[in-house]
Design a protein around this nucleic acid. Structure first.
Lengths: 150, 150
DNA sequence: GTAAAATATATCGTACGCGATATATTTTTC
DNA sequence: GAAAAATATATCGCGTACGATATATTTTAC
């Protein structure tokens, strides 16, 4: 009868990741709403604030997304006046993404967001550090698996 | 200049959850494709295999989703012949979800999926256990925050 | 006991994610 | 150096997620 133990929701490693991911996004939402952006758009900005003027592919790689997700997302961001898309002159296949003044300025408002979220107070620092390491390992492993299967 | 350290992608706790969640789903996909279901549909089945004949709301609560996500998902599952939707007689607002024979039978095929995924071999057991505990704490915390804000 | 509040589900609109496919441009190969 | 392969991005279709809103039914308040 209970060979089915492995199929119980509480025994899945996958479900907590799925649920936590969505709940974290929801935590961000009210703060991001003030900036007029969504969570995936926020991630794109995090990337661009670190390194401006990079290709669509580079952004996709950093966020582990495909261009068919990023392309329309970037278009919405362009419509919102946050970025500009410019074709590379050396390689006309490439499109380089530039922050506009508006996109750059949002950084100053965004900088206070992390401190407003749970983390520092509610969760133990040591555990948090272990967590991060584990996640890094898991992420590396999963990324490697993606590539070997292609 | 580097007050912006907190905005670096690598310093975000949120991003690994987001990325890992998507990559795990992708790991499941080929196996679920054989059963003709998607990952969220698989989660619904996990719930129903544990407890059949529950309301839409109960499923939504267990998966921490809203009914506006679950309702169309269940309709697709009904069209696929996996479940049936029956109005409760005591309370006509409620819709109870029943597994069909087909939905129940899938369990036997699904039972071998967990062992086919990464986990047991590649990742240290002790770490995995700590991880689970941490996730449980975080999930409880996040769920509580959802409720206090409403 | 009836109006108001609460509850359960559904509908609508928007924004992802992603597989499959298309298109345009470069690079490689022979 | 022209055909074939590779690369970069875009387009299309489908299935989630979710906020906002609608509808139907039950419960609560007075």
């Amino acid at each position: 009868m209970d060979n089915y133990e492995v199929l119980k929701l509480d025994n899945q490693l996958c479900f907590p990741f799925y649920a936590i991911s969505r709940l974290i996004t929801k935590q961000y939402q009210p703060h991001l709403e003030e900036l007029g952006i969504t969570y995936p758009q926020y991630l794109v900005l995090l990337v661009l604030w670190e390194t401006d003027q990079i290709s669509v592919n580079t952004i996709a790689e950093k966020l582990i997304l495909k261009t068919n997700t990023i392309t329309p997302l970037l278009k919405r961001m362009e419509n919102a006046g946050l970025i500009k898309r410019l074709k590379s002159k050396e390689d006309e296949r490439k499109v380089y993404i530039h922050l506009t003044k508006k996109g750059l300025t949002l950084r100053e408002k965004a900088v206070c967001i992390p401190s407003k979220l749970i983390g520092s107070d509610e969760v133990d620092d040591k555990q948090m550090e272990m967590m991060k390491k584990f996640q890094q390992q898991l992420l590396t492993l999963l990324k490697a698996m993606q590539n070997t299967e292609e």
